[in-house]
Design a protein around this nucleic acid. Sequence first.
DNA 1: CTGATTGCAAATGCTTTGCACGCCA
DNA 2: TGGCGTGCAAAGCATTTGCAATCAG
Lengths: 166, 166
Amino acid sequence: MEEEIREKLDAFIRKKGLRQTGQRDEIVEVIFATDEHFTPDELFDRLRAAGSRASRATVYRTLSLLVEANLIHEIELGDGQTTYDPNFVDHPNHNHLICVDCGKVVEFEDSHLDLLNDCLTRRLGYRPVRQSLRIEAACEKLRKSGTCPDLIQARIRGKRLPNRKK
Amino acid sequence: MEEEIREKLDAFIRKKGLRQTGQRDEIVEVIFATDEHFTPDELFDRLRAAGSRASRATVYRTLSLLVEANLIHEIELGDGQTTYDPNFVDHPNHNHLICVDCGKVVEFEDSHLDLLNDCLTRRLGYRPVRQSLRIEAACEKLRKSGTCPDLIQARIRGKRLPNRKK
DNA sequence: CTGATTGCAAATGCTTTGCACGCCA
DNA sequence: TGGCGTGCAAAGCATTTGCAATCAG
Protein backbone atom coordinates (compact mmCIF):
# COMPACT_ATOMS: atom_id res chain seq x y z
CA MET A 1 0.00 0.00 0.00
CA GLU A 2 3.00 2.22 0.36
CA GLU A 3 2.67 2.71 -3.36
CA GLU A 4 -0.85 3.96 -3.24
CA ILE A 5 -0.04 6.31 -0.38
CA ARG A 6 2.91 7.87 -2.14
CA GLU A 7 0.91 8.32 -5.30
CA LYS A 8 -1.97 10.02 -3.57
CA LEU A 9 0.36 12.24 -1.61
CA ASP A 10 2.33 13.25 -4.69
CA ALA A 11 -0.86 14.01 -6.56
CA PHE A 12 -2.03 16.14 -3.65
CA ILE A 13 1.26 17.99 -3.41
CA ARG A 14 1.33 18.69 -7.11
CA LYS A 15 -2.27 19.82 -7.24
CA LYS A 16 -1.73 22.21 -4.35
CA GLY A 17 1.57 23.51 -5.59
CA LEU A 18 3.32 22.30 -2.43
CA ARG A 19 6.79 20.87 -2.08
CA GLN A 20 8.26 17.52 -1.29
CA THR A 21 10.60 17.77 1.67
CA GLY A 22 12.73 15.50 3.76
CA GLN A 23 10.62 16.05 6.85
CA ARG A 24 7.38 15.22 5.08
CA ASP A 25 8.90 12.06 3.66
CA GLU A 26 10.12 10.95 7.06
CA ILE A 27 6.77 11.63 8.69
CA VAL A 28 4.80 9.75 6.05
CA GLU A 29 7.30 6.94 6.20
CA VAL A 30 6.94 6.52 9.95
CA ILE A 31 3.16 6.86 9.97
CA PHE A 32 2.55 4.17 7.39
CA ALA A 33 5.24 1.81 8.63
CA THR A 34 2.53 0.28 10.82
CA ASP A 35 -1.26 0.46 10.83
CA GLU A 36 -1.41 1.74 14.41
CA HIS A 37 -3.31 4.78 15.59
CA PHE A 38 -1.18 7.53 17.03
CA THR A 39 -1.27 10.89 18.73
CA PRO A 40 0.94 13.74 17.53
CA ASP A 41 3.12 13.19 20.55
CA GLU A 42 3.54 9.48 19.94
CA LEU A 43 4.37 10.19 16.35
CA PHE A 44 6.95 12.72 17.45
CA ASP A 45 8.61 10.10 19.65
CA ARG A 46 8.60 7.52 16.89
CA LEU A 47 10.20 10.02 14.58
CA ARG A 48 12.96 10.76 17.03
CA ALA A 49 13.49 7.05 17.49
CA ALA A 50 13.76 6.70 13.74
CA GLY A 51 16.40 9.40 13.60
CA SER A 52 14.27 12.20 12.25
CA ARG A 53 14.84 15.70 13.60
CA ALA A 54 11.48 17.08 12.43
CA SER A 55 10.05 19.54 14.94
CA ARG A 56 6.74 19.31 16.71
CA ALA A 57 5.44 22.24 14.68
CA THR A 58 6.23 20.44 11.46
CA VAL A 59 4.59 17.29 12.74
CA TYR A 60 1.38 19.18 13.45
CA ARG A 61 1.49 21.00 10.15
CA THR A 62 2.09 17.79 8.23
CA LEU A 63 -0.73 16.00 10.02
CA SER A 64 -3.17 18.70 8.90
CA LEU A 65 -1.90 18.24 5.40
CA LEU A 66 -2.39 14.50 5.43
CA VAL A 67 -5.90 14.88 6.78
CA GLU A 68 -6.69 17.28 3.98
CA ALA A 69 -5.21 14.83 1.50
CA ASN A 70 -7.46 12.18 3.01
CA LEU A 71 -4.57 9.87 3.85
CA ILE A 72 -5.32 9.83 7.56
CA HIS A 73 -8.40 10.61 9.65
CA GLU A 74 -8.80 12.27 12.99
CA ILE A 75 -10.63 10.15 15.52
CA GLU A 76 -11.76 11.22 18.96
CA LEU A 77 -10.91 8.89 21.75
CA GLY A 78 -11.94 11.35 24.42
CA ASP A 79 -8.60 11.59 26.15
CA GLY A 80 -7.82 15.20 25.37
CA GLN A 81 -5.56 14.59 22.41
CA THR A 82 -6.44 14.04 18.81
CA THR A 83 -5.71 10.55 17.60
CA TYR A 84 -4.97 9.84 13.98
CA ASP A 85 -5.94 6.72 12.10
CA PRO A 86 -3.93 5.71 9.02
CA ASN A 87 -6.18 2.81 8.03
CA PHE A 88 -8.86 4.61 6.08
CA VAL A 89 -7.00 4.25 2.81
CA ASP A 90 -7.30 0.48 3.02
CA HIS A 91 -10.59 0.36 4.92
CA PRO A 92 -12.62 3.47 4.13
CA ASN A 93 -15.65 2.43 6.17
CA HIS A 94 -14.25 0.94 9.31
CA ASN A 95 -15.57 1.74 12.75
CA HIS A 96 -14.15 1.74 16.26
CA LEU A 97 -14.96 -0.05 19.45
CA ILE A 98 -13.24 1.44 22.46
CA CYS A 99 -12.75 -0.69 25.55
CA VAL A 100 -13.76 1.28 28.63
CA ASP A 101 -11.53 -0.92 30.76
CA CYS A 102 -8.22 -0.57 28.98
CA GLY A 103 -8.72 1.95 26.20
CA LYS A 104 -7.94 -0.56 23.49
CA VAL A 105 -9.38 0.37 20.13
CA VAL A 106 -10.78 -2.43 17.99
CA GLU A 107 -11.48 -1.73 14.36
CA PHE A 108 -14.25 -3.48 12.52
CA GLU A 109 -16.28 -3.26 9.35
CA ASP A 110 -19.86 -4.28 8.69
CA SER A 111 -21.83 -3.92 5.53
CA HIS A 112 -25.19 -3.98 7.29
CA LEU A 113 -24.09 -1.04 9.34
CA ASP A 114 -22.95 0.84 6.26
CA LEU A 115 -26.26 0.28 4.57
CA LEU A 116 -28.22 1.34 7.62
CA ASN A 117 -26.14 4.50 7.96
CA ASP A 118 -26.82 5.36 4.41
CA CYS A 119 -30.57 4.92 4.80
CA LEU A 120 -30.74 6.89 8.01
CA THR A 121 -28.77 9.75 6.55
CA ARG A 122 -30.94 10.06 3.48
CA ARG A 123 -34.10 9.79 5.48
CA LEU A 124 -33.00 12.80 7.49
CA GLY A 125 -32.47 14.82 4.32
CA TYR A 126 -28.71 14.61 4.07
CA ARG A 127 -26.15 13.10 1.78
CA PRO A 128 -23.66 10.68 3.40
CA VAL A 129 -20.11 11.99 3.71
CA ARG A 130 -18.54 10.06 6.53
CA GLN A 131 -19.96 7.81 9.13
CA SER A 132 -18.41 6.54 12.26
CA LEU A 133 -19.90 4.23 14.74
CA ARG A 134 -18.11 4.55 17.97
CA ILE A 135 -18.93 1.88 20.49
CA GLU A 136 -17.78 2.05 24.06
CA ALA A 137 -17.84 -1.38 25.60
CA ALA A 138 -16.59 -3.39 28.52
CA CYS A 139 -14.24 -6.32 28.14
CA GLU A 140 -16.04 -9.62 28.59
CA LYS A 141 -12.79 -11.40 29.22
CA LEU A 142 -11.96 -9.12 32.11
CA ARG A 143 -15.36 -9.60 33.67
CA LYS A 144 -15.22 -13.38 33.48
CA SER A 145 -11.63 -14.08 34.33
CA GLY A 146 -10.80 -10.97 36.31
CA THR A 147 -7.93 -10.12 34.01
CA CYS A 148 -7.21 -9.13 30.45
CA PRO A 149 -3.89 -9.00 28.64
CA ASP A 150 -4.80 -5.69 27.00
CA LEU A 151 -5.38 -4.07 30.36
CA ILE A 152 -2.05 -5.28 31.66
CA GLN A 153 -0.33 -3.92 28.58
CA ALA A 154 -2.08 -0.58 28.97
CA ARG A 155 -0.88 -0.31 32.57
CA ILE A 156 2.67 -1.19 31.65
CA ARG A 157 2.74 1.49 29.02
CA GLY A 158 1.14 4.01 31.36
CA LYS A 159 -1.49 4.66 28.75
CA ARG A 160 -4.17 7.21 29.36
CA LEU A 161 -7.50 5.51 29.70
CA PRO A 162 -10.65 6.73 27.91
CA ASN A 163 -12.42 9.66 29.52
CA ARG A 164 -9.45 10.25 31.75
CA LYS A 165 -8.17 13.70 31.22
CA LYS A 166 -5.03 13.30 33.25
CA MET B 1 -38.80 15.91 33.24
CA GLU B 2 -37.48 18.53 35.60
CA GLU B 3 -38.78 16.28 38.33
CA GLU B 4 -36.82 13.27 37.22
CA ILE B 5 -33.65 15.32 36.86
CA ARG B 6 -33.90 16.78 40.35
CA GLU B 7 -34.57 13.39 41.84
CA LYS B 8 -31.62 11.75 40.17
CA LEU B 9 -29.36 14.61 41.12
CA ASP B 10 -30.48 14.59 44.73
CA ALA B 11 -29.98 10.85 44.93
CA PHE B 12 -26.50 11.24 43.48
CA ILE B 13 -25.61 14.04 45.87
CA ARG B 14 -26.84 12.09 48.86
CA LYS B 15 -25.11 8.90 47.85
CA LYS B 16 -21.81 10.71 47.38
CA GLY B 17 -22.06 12.77 50.54
CA LEU B 18 -21.97 15.98 48.49
CA ARG B 19 -23.82 19.21 49.13
CA GLN B 20 -26.59 21.10 47.48
CA THR B 21 -25.49 24.62 46.67
CA GLY B 22 -26.92 27.66 44.99
CA GLN B 23 -24.45 27.47 42.14
CA ARG B 24 -25.25 23.86 41.37
CA ASP B 25 -28.97 24.60 41.41
CA GLU B 26 -28.55 27.50 39.03
CA ILE B 27 -26.41 25.49 36.66
CA VAL B 28 -28.80 22.55 36.53
CA GLU B 29 -31.70 24.94 36.12
CA VAL B 30 -30.14 26.65 33.12
CA ILE B 31 -28.94 23.44 31.47
CA PHE B 32 -32.31 21.74 31.53
CA ALA B 33 -34.35 24.81 30.70
CA THR B 34 -33.93 23.77 27.06
CA ASP B 35 -32.87 20.55 25.35
CA GLU B 36 -30.02 22.22 23.46
CA HIS B 37 -26.44 21.05 23.37
CA PHE B 38 -23.93 23.44 24.85
CA THR B 39 -20.25 24.03 25.41
CA PRO B 40 -18.95 25.08 28.84
CA ASP B 41 -18.48 28.57 27.47
CA GLU B 42 -21.98 28.85 26.11
CA LEU B 43 -23.33 27.61 29.40
CA PHE B 44 -21.29 30.20 31.23
CA ASP B 45 -22.82 32.94 29.07
CA ARG B 46 -26.32 31.65 29.61
CA LEU B 47 -25.70 31.61 33.33
CA ARG B 48 -24.54 35.19 33.33
CA ALA B 49 -27.58 36.14 31.28
CA ALA B 50 -29.75 34.40 33.86
CA GLY B 51 -28.15 36.38 36.65
CA SER B 52 -25.94 33.66 38.07
CA ARG B 53 -22.49 34.63 39.29
CA ALA B 54 -21.09 31.07 39.24
CA SER B 55 -17.46 31.04 38.13
CA ARG B 56 -16.02 29.18 35.18
CA ALA B 57 -14.24 26.80 37.53
CA THR B 58 -17.51 25.89 39.19
CA VAL B 59 -19.16 25.41 35.83
CA TYR B 60 -16.47 22.95 34.81
CA ARG B 61 -16.57 21.16 38.13
CA THR B 62 -20.35 20.87 38.04
CA LEU B 63 -20.31 19.56 34.49
CA SER B 64 -18.00 16.73 35.54
CA LEU B 65 -20.39 15.98 38.35
CA LEU B 66 -23.41 15.84 36.08
CA VAL B 67 -21.59 13.56 33.67
CA GLU B 68 -20.75 11.25 36.53
CA ALA B 69 -24.37 11.36 37.66
CA ASN B 70 -25.32 10.43 34.10
CA LEU B 71 -27.55 13.47 33.66
CA ILE B 72 -25.60 14.80 30.70
CA HIS B 73 -23.19 13.24 28.20
CA GLU B 74 -20.09 14.55 26.56
CA ILE B 75 -20.21 14.47 22.79
CA GLU B 76 -17.37 15.28 20.43
CA LEU B 77 -18.21 17.64 17.64
CA GLY B 78 -14.61 18.03 16.60
CA ASP B 79 -14.36 21.76 17.12
CA GLY B 80 -11.88 21.77 19.95
CA GLN B 81 -14.33 22.15 22.79
CA THR B 82 -16.33 19.52 24.59
CA THR B 83 -20.03 19.72 23.90
CA TYR B 84 -22.56 18.48 26.40
CA ASP B 85 -25.86 16.87 25.57
CA PRO B 86 -28.70 17.00 28.13
CA ASN B 87 -31.08 14.76 26.20
CA PHE B 88 -29.85 11.35 27.25
CA VAL B 89 -32.19 11.21 30.22
CA ASP B 90 -35.18 11.28 27.89
CA HIS B 91 -33.55 9.51 24.95
CA PRO B 92 -30.82 7.19 26.23
CA ASN B 93 -29.95 5.75 22.82
CA HIS B 94 -30.04 8.67 20.47
CA ASN B 95 -27.36 9.34 17.89
CA HIS B 96 -26.04 12.40 16.11
CA LEU B 97 -25.81 13.49 12.54
CA ILE B 98 -23.54 16.47 12.03
CA CYS B 99 -23.97 18.64 8.97
CA VAL B 100 -20.59 19.30 7.38
CA ASP B 101 -21.98 22.45 5.78
CA CYS B 102 -23.33 24.29 8.79
CA GLY B 103 -22.41 22.26 11.84
CA LYS B 104 -26.02 21.61 12.76
CA VAL B 105 -26.51 18.55 14.93
CA VAL B 106 -29.55 16.40 14.27
CA GLU B 107 -30.53 13.83 16.86
CA PHE B 108 -32.21 10.61 15.89
CA GLU B 109 -33.04 7.19 17.26
CA ASP B 110 -33.32 3.88 15.48
CA SER B 111 -34.01 0.51 16.95
CA HIS B 112 -32.39 -1.40 14.11
CA LEU B 113 -29.23 0.48 14.74
CA ASP B 114 -29.38 -0.29 18.46
CA LEU B 115 -29.81 -3.96 17.77
CA LEU B 116 -26.99 -4.04 15.28
CA ASN B 117 -24.67 -2.25 17.70
CA ASP B 118 -25.46 -4.78 20.34
CA CYS B 119 -24.71 -7.72 18.05
CA LEU B 120 -21.48 -6.25 16.75
CA THR B 121 -20.24 -5.51 20.23
CA ARG B 122 -20.90 -9.01 21.50
CA ARG B 123 -19.39 -10.60 18.46
CA LEU B 124 -16.18 -8.75 19.18
CA GLY B 125 -16.10 -10.11 22.71
CA TYR B 126 -17.33 -7.07 24.58
CA ARG B 127 -20.31 -6.04 26.60
CA PRO B 128 -22.21 -2.96 25.37
CA VAL B 129 -21.83 0.15 27.54
CA ARG B 130 -22.50 3.06 25.28
CA GLN B 131 -22.82 3.39 21.58
CA SER B 132 -22.78 6.43 19.47
CA LEU B 133 -23.20 6.60 15.79
CA ARG B 134 -21.83 9.82 14.53
CA ILE B 135 -22.70 10.59 10.95
CA GLU B 136 -21.14 13.45 9.08
CA ALA B 137 -23.29 14.40 6.15
CA ALA B 138 -23.91 17.13 3.64
CA CYS B 139 -27.13 19.07 3.44
CA GLU B 140 -29.24 17.96 0.51
CA LYS B 141 -31.25 21.16 0.65
CA LEU B 142 -28.14 23.25 0.24
CA ARG B 143 -26.97 21.23 -2.70
CA LYS B 144 -30.28 21.44 -4.54
CA SER B 145 -31.34 24.98 -3.81
CA GLY B 146 -27.97 26.54 -3.13
CA THR B 147 -29.04 27.71 0.29
CA CYS B 148 -30.10 26.39 3.65
CA PRO B 149 -31.65 28.23 6.58
CA ASP B 150 -29.44 26.41 9.06
CA LEU B 151 -26.31 27.59 7.31
CA ILE B 152 -27.50 31.17 7.33
CA GLN B 153 -28.24 30.91 11.03
CA ALA B 154 -24.83 29.44 11.71
CA ARG B 155 -23.16 32.33 9.91
CA ILE B 156 -25.18 34.91 11.76
CA ARG B 157 -24.22 33.41 15.07
CA GLY B 158 -20.58 33.13 14.03
CA LYS B 159 -20.66 29.50 14.99
CA ARG B 160 -17.56 27.41 14.69
CA LEU B 161 -17.99 24.87 11.95
CA PRO B 162 -17.04 21.21 12.39
CA ASN B 163 -13.34 20.45 12.09
CA ARG B 164 -12.56 24.12 12.31
CA LYS B 165 -10.32 24.78 15.21
CA LYS B 166 -10.46 28.52 15.10
C1' DC C 1 -17.89 22.55 63.81
C1' DT C 2 -15.93 20.23 59.75
C1' DG C 3 -15.40 19.03 55.51
C1' DA C 4 -17.33 20.22 50.97
C1' DT C 5 -17.48 24.13 47.71
C1' DT C 6 -16.27 28.31 45.61
C1' DG C 7 -13.61 32.01 43.23
C1' DC C 8 -9.49 33.56 41.76
C1' DA C 9 -5.45 33.30 39.54
C1' DA C 10 -1.90 30.47 38.20
C1' DA C 11 -0.79 26.32 36.00
C1' DT C 12 -1.38 22.72 32.45
C1' DG C 13 -1.32 20.47 28.15
C1' DC C 14 -2.23 20.31 23.48
C1' DT C 15 -1.99 22.87 19.42
C1' DT C 16 -1.19 26.97 16.59
C1' DT C 17 1.56 30.93 15.00
C1' DG C 18 4.98 34.85 14.05
C1' DC C 19 9.22 35.35 12.35
C1' DA C 20 13.80 34.79 10.47
C1' DC C 21 16.29 31.50 8.05
C1' DG C 22 16.87 27.68 4.80
C1' DC C 23 15.78 24.98 0.94
C1' DC C 24 12.83 23.01 -3.12
C1' DA C 25 11.36 23.84 -7.75
C1' DT D 1 15.29 33.51 -7.37
C1' DG D 2 10.69 33.28 -5.23
C1' DG D 3 8.21 31.35 -2.15
C1' DC D 4 7.06 27.41 0.44
C1' DG D 5 8.69 24.90 4.54
C1' DT D 6 11.04 24.62 8.95
C1' DG D 7 12.45 25.37 13.75
C1' DC D 8 12.06 27.94 17.72
C1' DA D 9 9.90 30.18 21.11
C1' DA D 10 5.93 32.57 22.22
C1' DA D 11 1.06 32.71 22.04
C1' DG D 12 -3.62 30.65 22.29
C1' DC D 13 -7.36 28.08 24.19
C1' DA D 14 -9.93 25.05 26.77
C1' DT D 15 -9.65 23.01 31.00
C1' DT D 16 -7.76 21.90 35.61
C1' DT D 17 -5.89 22.95 40.11
C1' DG D 18 -3.84 25.09 44.57
C1' DC D 19 -5.30 27.78 48.10
C1' DA D 20 -7.68 30.64 51.28
C1' DA D 21 -12.19 32.05 52.28
C1' DT D 22 -17.03 30.58 52.62
C1' DC D 23 -20.85 27.76 53.29
C1' DA D 24 -23.93 23.60 53.94
C1' DG D 25 -25.37 20.10 57.05
